[in-house]
Design a protein around this nucleic acid. Structure first.
Length: 459
RNA sequence: GGCCGGGUGGCGGAGUGGCUACGCAGAGGACUGCAAAUCCUUGUACACCGGUUCGAUUCCGGUCCCGGCCUCCA
């Protein structure tokens, strides 16, 4: 039984889909104006984990995961202007990088990745419906959502209108009837992207795309809406307002799941603070699997501090796991994967990845202790099932330990053979010289009962 | 100012009203020609002050500190 912490209730709840044959998950995706950083990777990994969990429970064909791509936004316009290239160049390039980076982190592609610019008509229709129902109004070329028209506004983020107005740090635009009103549509000057609409040529506000696209691909009410916790307000609150008012009060999402931040020295990693590392740069120094494991090393709702030390620790954990797999040799896995159960149970408890990883490490210990084939087969089945649930351990242990570029393998094997010969004639000094020479090159030797194996040391 | 989170051993990080996960690092032992890998053993932890309780790290109240949202933000 999957249990999730529902932000709307501020409590853990059993997850029961409205229709188990058609489970819907919507996650706010990237605004494609700049290469994503590791903080942006956190929800990618967290919701990939949830996607895997749902698919495992309800069947791959019965889960729809939608993650949008926001390709119309003022930051994109600014980036295009700054680099003096067309907007389409920026969005295409950034979307490509995002795709490559998320793939490198072992994230499955979502079922759908709709783009905002391809759903302008749906947004216009929704805005028109909101105006018709008295929840929005046109003013000065803009269309605004009329917050006072919705008494329940603020439930998700648990803040009321008065507090927001009192705490507002921004000047209220003159065309707003109420300070809390937010933009659904805004006018575009000729140099900016724009679409014809009943309110003139313009472009959508920030929140409306998610309301329009989730409706189109998942329906009026769907199961889970996810994103970073910084989206709770205003983005998700406003999505709720737009969608429920368009749909006569039908709720937007039944469960809301929000991930905590990645921090650096305790502070949120963000573009504006400048304390970010792009996924791309992180991948230059570490395998994607290491980064993925780091992002799972803390519970998803907790802050997670990004540092060299956590990367080192995640690398050590993967070394241990892949060494354990190697220890199982070529024993085929058993049919029975019940040994993965503790990992699954931990994941079903609001995606408790630290506990799941602890259980996984215990399986590694068991693999190392296993002496007979039936037990090895059982442990392998457990490790593989648990690895698949976590999106880890998909590589060949030998490839992990020795690296993909095997260009030196022949030379290394030759050195190992020479050392073996030296050991046979008890010339340990010569044998150790060979081992030390390899070590300088980052090659570590391990003598086992079935011979000597080697691996590349990782920092 | 308003609203939210969080403070766990050298480090990362779960969890629990009483039996102190897991990993990394450290120590001792086994194995090894010596190592490495592996196995076994091992350590003083729960911000502070009160309260409830037979008993609190875990519940309640307060204090201090850190972070987040209220503006673009995963």
């Amino acid at each position: 039984m999957l249990v999730l912490y529902n932000t709307a209730k501020r409590a853990k709840e059993p997850f029961v889909p409205a229709d188990p044959r058609n489970v819907g998950l919507y996650v706010c995706g990237p605004t494609v104006y700049d290469a994503p950083h590791v903080g942006n990777a956190r929800p990618v990994v967290v919701f990939d984990l949830l996607f895997r969990l749902l698919r495992r429970t309800y069947g791959e064909a019965h889960v729809t995961y939608v993650r949008n791509i926001t390709d119309v936004d003022d930051k994109i316009n600014a980036a295009a202007k700054e680099r003096n290239v067309a907007i389409g160049v920026i969005t295409a390039e950034t979307a490509r990088i995002y795709d490559e980076d998320t793939k490198a982190l072992g994230a499955l592609p979502p079922t759908r990745e709709p783009r905002a610019t391809e759903h302008i008509a749906e947004m216009i229709a929704m805005i028109a419906a909101l105006i018709a129902k008295g929840h929005a109004y046109a003013a000065d070329g803009h269309v605004l959502f009329d917050v006072p028209s919705m008494p329940a506004y603020g439930q998700l983020s648990r803040r009321n209108r008065d507090e927001m107005i009192a705490g507002a740090r921004v000047e209220v635009a003159p065309y707003k009837r109420d300070p809390a009103d937010f933009v659904l549509w805004k006018p575009s000057t000729p140099d900016l992207p724009g679409w014809d609409s009943p309110w003139g040529r313009g472009r959508p506000g920030w929140h409306i795309e998610c309301s329009a696209m989730s409706r189109k691909y998942l329906g009026v009410t769907f199961d889970i809406h996810g994103g970073g916790r910084d989206l709770i307000f205003p983005h998700h609150e406003n999505e709720v307002a737009q969608s429920t008012c368009t749909h006569g009060g039908a709720p937007l999402a039944r469960y809301w799941v929000h991930n905590g931040f990645l921090t650096v020295n305790g502070e949120k990693m963000s573009k504006s603070l400048g304390n970010f590392v792009t996924i791309r740069d992180a991948l230059k120094a570490h395998p994607g699997e290491v980064i993925r494991l780091v992002l799972m090393s803390a519970h998803y709702r907790q802050p997670l501090d990004w540092s060299e030390d956590v990367l080192r620790q995640a690398t050590a954990m993967l070394d241990r796991l892949y060494t354990a797999l190697a220890h199982l040799g070529d024993t085929a896995k058993a049919e029975d994967d019940t040994l993965a159960a503790p990992v699954m149970t931990a994941l079903e408890d609001d995606m408790n990845t630290p506990e799941a990883l602890a259980a996984l490490m215990e399986l590694a210990g068991r693999a190392n202790r296993a002496t007979n084939a039936p037990e090895k087969a059982l442990v392998r089945a457990g490790l593989e099932a648990a690895g698949a649930a976590l999106g880890l351990l998909g590589r060949d242990p030998k490839a992990w330990r020795q690296g993909d570029g095997d260009r030196d393998a022949g030379a290394i094997e030759a050195q190992i053979a020479a050392r073996l010969a030296a050991r046979k004639r008890k010339d340990f000094a010569a044998a150790d010289r060979i081992r030390d020479a390899l070590k300088v090159q980052g090659i570590e030797l391990e003598d086992g009962p079935t011979g000597t194996t080697w691996r590349r040391a990782r920092s």
